[in-house]
Nucleic acid binder design. Structure first.
Lengths: 216, 216
DNA sequence: GTCTATAACGAGATAGAC
DNA sequence: GTCTATCTCGTTATAGAC
């Protein structure tokens, strides 16, 4: 039903999406306007409203679709993660890729813009949740049987890791060296996980005992 | 030299600063304009330019002074921290206070706005560094003698903690429950520090040995 | 130091030609 | 589906009265 061959229209719509991504990534959410986006897309300003109804809606849809595309890229990788170390390695890889690609920066910008726009808040939640879901699932798998399992809440940790990534990503654009230091420190600290996971039975029991005592 | 009794002028300048803080905290950086700020301050729009030269400069100065004021509030507290547990407790307290006061949210918003404004980037670095400095100094003190000392880089961790806080703070405005889960998970995980710090000598040696092996 | 007025421009959004 | 033209409003910034 309906007309086929709407490739031209779809192209323009996609170009507008790409345009808003470009503007947000290079100049931030405050620089977004129908005009700046249309200019980046090589399209007419009025088409923003024809295709999306409002600038806000364009940003929201771009945020969701771009995030979904990035997450989809890593879905198999997340599924293949079997240990905490592998999850950390994947984190490193994602950070490097997103740093170049700028999609986490996009999410961080829309998160900032979400204050003052319920539509953007909704879109940001939806986008961020795609990441959180992957991280949580991987965490659940990886922590099973680990001595850490009893003090690690996968869902909460997935939220913490994901939002922490966003803060770091924002900071990255302002102080790349500082951001690098932060990551390096965290990775160094992450060695602790390997250590705990690889302790012998005696030491493991000692940690477990102390853990129960501290938690109670 | 010069006129004394410029209290009225200083008052207006301060009201403008308070105005921009109010706008940023309640509506986000995207809602900031000379008019919105002047309206919140109960002042005339032209005074923004008389006192600060530009909207950007007003935001930058407000960001720095407001952050300095908040950090100063906690400086003694940071200085009094003697253990990791106390530092975590202070973190909890600061989070609760800033959640109500909205000053970390301010910093997060200016951080987002910093992309596209070098002046804002500079101001955000300056503000954030005030927090980072306090955290780093406390971390250095607290980690001395801990089994964690050899894998904890205080400066990098201070950066990570501070920027992580910002990401979490942004997320807080969009999904308070999710943010709460994240904090709860981190606090639960922080128990690990207490555990490691309180291990007996045998277990500590085991951890240390494994640590060296893993790091090498 | 503070106000009004205004210039000059960019913004969101719509109407209508093509 | 895309364009031009336009409306209306908000925005930055300045000039000048008070």
């Amino acid at each position: 039903m309906g007309t086929s061959r709407n490739s031209s229209s779809q192209d323009t719509k996609q170009r507008l999406v790409d345009g808003v991504l470009e503007v947000v990534r290079q100049q931030g959410i405050t620089a977004v306007s129908a005009r700046s986006v249309a200019s980046a897309a090589g399209a007419n300003q009025a088409l923003v409203f024809y295709h999306f109804g409002s600038v806000e809606e364009l940003v929201a849809q771009a945020c969701i679709s771009a995030t979904e595309a990035r997450v989809a890229l890593y879905r198999d990788r997340f599924a293949a993660v079997a240990t905490v170390g592998e999850l950390l390695a994947l984190g490193r890889e994602i950070r490097a890729a997103e740093r170049a690609e700028g999609n986490l920066a996009l999410l961080a910008q829309t998160l900032a813009g979400a204050q003052g726009s319920e539509r953007l808040a909704e879109a940001t939640r939806e986008g961020l949740n795609k990441w959180i879901t992957e991280v949580r699932t991987a965490l659940e798998r990886v922590l099973t049987g680990s001595p850490l399992a009893e003090l690690a809440d996968p869902d909460g940790l997935a939220h913490a890791v994901s939002t922490g990534f966003l803060g770091l990503t924002l900071f990255d654009t302002v102080d790349p060296d500082g951001a690098e230091q932060a990551v390096a420190a965290l990775e160094r600290l992450a060695v602790l996980v390997d250590v705990l996971d690889g302790l012998g039975p005696v030491a493991t029991r000692a940690v477990r005992a102390k853990l129960r005592k501290t938690l109670s």
